[in-house]
Amino acid sequence: MEEKRHTSLHYEVELQEIKNGLIYIGVLTENAIQNAMKSLSERDSEMAHKVIKDDDEIDKLDAEMEERCIRILALRQPTAIDLRFITTAIKVTGHLERIGDMAVNIAEKAIQLNDEPKLKPYIDLPRMTDLVVEMVNNSLDSFIRYDLNIAEKVRQTEQITDDLNEQIFRELLTFMMEDSKCIHRALLIMHVSKNLERIADHAKGIADMVTYMVTGENVRHQTRDISAKEPA
């Protein structure tokens, strides 16, 4: 979608700053997810602590971004797509902040897991991580470029992460049934998987907001109906 330039150049700059700021937060959260998962797979608790510490930065940026959006709403009183862009930006930054928190959750679990022997080699979790990071990345892309195709792709990938989560859950269940000593670790890993799955949900949330922003049509609850029919 070709952007039209606004008559006020400064307004244009402000919108661009919001875009850049969101990508920046996005990149930080992507790094947080990756580093949290790396701390798990490479048993590097130091990195996990760093992820937890770096989340403060994301929280701070989120608050700043929200304030900036509100200022634009108040001063510029945007209309049509600009209005939807700003309101969406506020929601997107909220989603990103939540994703950052999930990464922190994963890092916390990683620290606990690293204190104990490795339960099993991780196969599905790295796959899921890659998918989830790509989803976050793509959802932001779709937001920046007003691109509905990418948003649609994010929605489709979300289903795959759900399935992977399911698969990991079943696998861990067998571990727990075999040996009660590994229940603690298995539960922690399950937590990690669940957090990844919830990150994917947030990415999908962003994608839905993008669809609303571009078309003005609310698709959030349509897709949720479909997923609700499937067994949990």
């Binding site: 875009k19 850049n20 990508i23 920046y24 996005g26 990149v27 992507e30 990345n137 920046i144």
Partner: peptide, 13 residues
């Protein structure tokens, strides 16, 4: 594009 859009790198930004 802006630097952030193009490279998506926090350090560079």
């Amino acid at each position: 594009k802006t630097l952030m859009e193009a490279f998506r790198n926090a350090d560079l930004q």
